[in-house]
Design a binder for these strands. Structure first.
Lengths: 219, 219
DNA sequence: CTTGACAACTTACGCTGTAAGGTTAATTTT
DNA sequence: AAAATTAACCTTACAGCGTAAGTTGTCAAG
């Protein structure tokens, strides 16, 4: 007649990997801001504080999630032409970062500093330097390309395609009447056009980088 | 001998404008995640719930802050060449968005839908269409340029220049030893280099857009 | 002087991350 | 086999969060 069901305590049920897997699931289901240690515990069938035995804090857990995603990025080796290598690396980063869409915005704003991430960063920076721009210019071109990449990931995972986050909303009729330019262009802002738009912008940057390099070499 | 100091109640002390001003101050002081209605109230010398008479929710307040920033953006009229107009508009957006650095990341991820913001958006989209790319391409070029702009704003206000957000940190010695590429390139990632890097990337995009347009016209 | 409305305040609720300490199961030592 | 130790998980509790609901004080109009 005991109402409360006694929890069977068993050791070794949890592991860092299990917790990380469950975290991605909860984040996708509840959204990044809807995620909490208690919801994660519920998903795992344990108590919130049990997680703290495996991760010292939520921040440590998040870092592990970032590390896991970033470390799965494959930077192309020198078996292809330079432009191709950059192209593949950028697309690969985008693919991995958007694998768990709800978590992507976190990756974008996260200032990584773990050895895992720094190693990857080091490889990518090396890739840009291999373009032969010299230290400073290749560093700046890397940043500029990152700007584009991060902005794209952010828009594709947390942008207008998900509907407005605003409290004040404008109806579709009002939109068509008062802001026809937005209405017309909006047709190309949906999920279906993400790849095409991204490739146009990326090719623009790649074209320019090649032009810069050729110009420097010709001199 | 009364320990508690009685609060003098006065009407009309608060206004939307006052609250918004104080909000920007608290956000800059405490950071976006450190901001709260209670801290805002403390700054204003009132109670948290008093704010709710002027803004129905925190989300409404945030929206007002976004509106205020976005509406202060000046889109250049047709008194200058097309490239120049885009250039000025992009730099102006960046200037306004980074005016309150701690709030900038919120603007970047915010999916605006208020008339104020839509009007501005409509103008900018019109600017891209004036480039003569046709509806679809100008829409995609606008998005690609936005990606770059948003990524830049995000990095400049919430990026590595503010130190790592990671829990795990790598010392400077370890960085120089294990990740020399990061170390070397990092010299150009500081605040001092923001403008130069941003201009390089922006000019690349503008150059390409002009090239695309000239190519289309020549055909 | 009374009345009514408005602006500010008080209290309370369910949520959050997590510090501190308790409990129990598995392992190791005797 | 029994005892001691250690590791894994749970319970409780706290401060802070946004905000719903209800209360109180103040000022302007009648």
């Amino acid at each position: 007649m005991d109402i409360s069901v006694k929890k069977k305590r068993t050791r070794g049920r949890l592991s860092r990997e299990m917790i990380e897997d469950a975290a991605f699931e909860v984040i996708e289901r509840e959204g990044l801001s809807g995620f909490s240690m208690r919801k994660l515990a519920a998903e795992l069938g344990c108590e919130a504080m049990s997680i703290y035995h495996h991760f010292p804090s939520q921040a440590h857990l998040y870092e592990a999630l970032v590390d896991r995603q970033i470390s799965s990025i494959k930077i192309p080796d020198d078996g292809m032409r330079w432009r191709q290598r950059i192209h593949v690396a950028v697309k690969e980063y985008r693919r991995v970062a958007t694998e768990h869409p709800a978590f992507a915005p976190f990756i974008v704003v996260y200032r990584m500093n773990s050895p895992t991430c720094l190693a990857k960063l080091n490889d990518v920076i090396g890739l840009f330097e291999a373009g032969g721009f010299g230290l400073e210019l290749s560093a700046r071109l890397f940043r500029a390309t990152s700007y584009y990449l991060m902005g794209a990931i952010l828009d594709e995972t947390a942008g207008y395609a998900k509907g407005p986050s605003a409290v004040t909303t404008v109806s579709d009729e009002a939109l068509a009447r008062d802001f026809p330019g937005v209405m017309a262009a909006g047709a190309y802002f949906g999920t279906a056009g993400f790849d095409k738009t991204f490739d146009i912008g990326l090719d623009m940057l790649l074209d320019e980088m090649e032009r810069i390099r050729d110009g420097a070499n010709a001199r």
